[in-house]
């Protein structure tokens, strides 16, 4: 326990916490994305998947609470590290060239906030159903398609998935560094893994609002 508290007190420990919670969320999002694209098969297969999940009853709260805990830890560390970084910089430069950092790495903080707003909206939209035009418990496939009929909503989903992709791209690469996985023989795979997972997950998710906007979702 002392070791965990000691780790959390350090900037490196907070980053390790972010990388482990981030990885957990990545794992969840891979499975969530795969189940979502079932909508392209047909609505009924999504309903079946939903029914299977609800079959776990109250047990479903175990993974839910673990995910919620991961999000809370991830954001708490992000918030504290951002504050430390701002304080560490002190004054700002008149001119500061940043040739090495990427668009993805520079948008981690605000992109993360957008993802948080998205997560809250998304849960109210499709899980709780209170900002859905016509929510019916258990009719997962139909709810998904109906919910995407609004163009602004589909557009918001699409933009959020682009933000998620950027966050993934830097986050997954960053995990290798944070956890000390750096070896000249394997390093050239790190970008590839980050790009591959980003395209797979963010692309998979984004395909749904994109299809809705193009009128292909029914």
């Amino acid at each position: 326990m002392n070791a965990i508290i000691g780790l959390w007190r350090s900037t490196i420990g907070k980053k390790i916490a972010m990388s482990l919670t981030g990885l957990l969320l990545v794992g969840f999002l891979i499975s969530h994305m795969i189940s979502n694209v079932l909508v392209f098969v047909d609505g009924a297969s999504l309903d079946l998947y939903g029914a299977w999940l609800r079959g776990f009853g109250p047990l479903l709260w175990i993974p839910r609470l673990i995910l919620l805990g991961a999000v809370v830890i991830h954001i708490a560390a992000a918030y504290q590290l951002s504050a430390l970084a701002r304080a560490g910089r002190g004054g700002s430069y008149r001119d500061h060239d940043r040739p090495a950092s990427t668009y993805a790495s520079r948008t981690m903080r605000w992109g993360g906030v957008l993802i948080l707003v998205f997560i809250i909206f998304h849960i109210l939209h499709y899980t709780v159903g209170i900002i859905h035009p016509d929510f019916r418990v258990g009719e997962v496939g139909r709810n998904l398609v109906r919910g995407m009929e609004s163009k602004p909503v589909a557009l918001f989903y699409l933009v959020s998935m682009i933000a998620l992709g950027a966050h993934f791209l830097h986050g997954i690469w960053s995990v290798f560094q944070t956890l000390g996985i750096n070896h000249p023989t394997w390093n050239r795979w790190r970008r590839g893994i980050a790009i591959g997972l980003t395209v797979l997950v963010a692309g998979g998710f984004a395909s749904i609002p994109a299809a809705a906007l193009l009128g292909w979702l029914r």
Partner: peptide, 9 residues
């Protein structure tokens, strides 16, 4: 000092 965000600057 601030923490590392792996910007690589």
């Amino acid at each position: 000092f601030g923490g590392c965000t792996n910007f690589a600057e």
